[in-house]
Design a binder for these strands. Structure first.
Lengths: 245, 245
DNA sequence: TGGACTAGCTGGTAATGACCACTTAACCAC
DNA sequence: GTGGTTAAGTGGTCATTACCAGCTAGTCCA
């Protein structure tokens, strides 16, 4: 006989504990900047070993919920810092987090050979076709950005408008359909001025200032999967990030 | 007798091991995307226990040098991703990392009461004086940004032009003189247009596009210590960041 | 009164042992 | 050949035990 499968049914203890602690923090049971019980206390309270406790705490520290001071204790982060690092998110998640209603107009989905500069970034040989998605992004119904994505897929891997409408997010399609999980990305930001076409699509004047974002996204095996260029309306978009060291 | 002091003389094993591994990676001994020895192998090679091995590897993963795949192994990151997360750095460090020669013109250092919006961000009561430093930032000798810092210091804590010239970096002064270690920051970026004064100082035309960065920096105990506003010349500055999830 | 010491907290590092979950490739039966 | 099984490798989780290092408050002595 082989082993019973039951994958994922057993949630790791450290994760369960982290969830409990997170609950107490978010419920306000432990005030910001106040210490949580010491690791030895948590050991007896929850009847788990100290390494497990520490693993939970380290997880919550990376999430930005806690911080440690050697010799003093472990403390709850002030609320402003509890949002965690700037995370790799899709446009939809990003906008939702800002309290805006995301939307999009898909202008085209096609197989095409992109400029060489894009192929180099995607580490593909010259002449390779990729999937190109051209969209207008909406915030609360009004244009907020122009987005062009180049996705490194084989000819047999196809994305349809139906996929996009069903999943709602490109990243969900990549994960569920192709097992490509975006885990890391390089992003640059600079200012640009709207040309006539961009101005028209964004419903602003020609020459208006824009925020230009270029992002190269890597999957779980650290291969580039997507290069995306977004032109944001300067008057409707601010970029937010959290830095740590 | 009390204990012999010798603090810091013993570098942790996991850190020593991490340094060794990092050396091998940077020397090209292990190629990008190729697996490093398994944790059990490293255990015998270096004669340290597996938890310590894992701690070393986890450290190098946060640094962006390695990544793991469950059931397959631990791999060297492709070179492009080895630079690690966007880190909380001073302007000087930032520019050096870009291969430019940083410089500055200190326009003023003074004790003053800043606008209420700044005091709120610094979590100080209305009317509180703070230290304000107004600088022109130079890249390779030419203006690249206008920077105004508001630093939350008590009246007895003074920063002088001499301090600035000696230490070279505000963050070094905060660390060495006041034991305030910047560990985390919130930053927003948006576009702006140069007014007459800004244009003159940056040696550009009025109305030229600028990148506006506003940053609130927190010290090791998660209290706000500095609010800084930087106006970058749009034609000379790109913002770079690394995202993970 | 004031400063040094110290005890008892805190988190930080480390070794040992065990078992689970995932991946791969070799194997074997069909 | 094809397809399922299996074994051996990988990282992932967890308990136990021990000691080190930084911080703080109380104590004790000058």
């Amino acid at each position: 006989m082989s082993r019973v499968v039951l994958p994922h049914t057993a949630i790791p203890k450290y994760y369960q504990l982290a969830t409990i602690l997170q609950g107490k923090i978010e419920a306000g049971e432990w005030a910001p900047r106040s210490p949580i019980p010491s690791e030895r206390q948590l050991e007896t309270i929850y009847n788990v070993s100290r390494p497990t406790i520490r693993q939970s705490i380290e997880y919550l520290i990376t999430q930005g919920l806690l911080y440690r001071e050697h010799g003093r204790g472990t403390f709850v982060s002030p609320e402003k810092l509890q949002k965690g690092l700037r995370e790799l998110t899709s446009f939809s998640e990003d906008l939702l987090a800002r309290g805006m209603r995301p939307g999009q107009v898909i202008r085209s989905i096609e197989r095409t050979v992109p400029p060489d500069s894009v192929l180099q970034r995607l580490e593909l040989p010259p002449g390779s076709p990729v999937t190109r998605i051209d969209r207008i992004r909406l915030g609360d119904g009004a244009p907020i950005g122009l987005q062009v994505s180049y996705i490194s897929l084989s000819p047999s891997q196809e994305i349809t408008v139906q996929d996009m409408e069903r999943a709602g997010s490109l990243y969900r399609i990549l994960e569920e359909k192709f097992n490509l999980i975006p885990t890391e990305a390089d992003e640059t930001l600079e200012v640009a001025l709207a040309n006539r076409e961009e101005a028209s699509l964004l419903e602003i004047n020609e020459g208006s200032p824009l925020l230009l974002s270029e992002r190269l996204t890597f999957s779980q095996d650290r291969r580039p999967v997507e290069f995306v260029r977004i032109l944001y309306r300067g008057d409707r978009y601010r970029y937010y990030t959290r830095l740590k060291r």
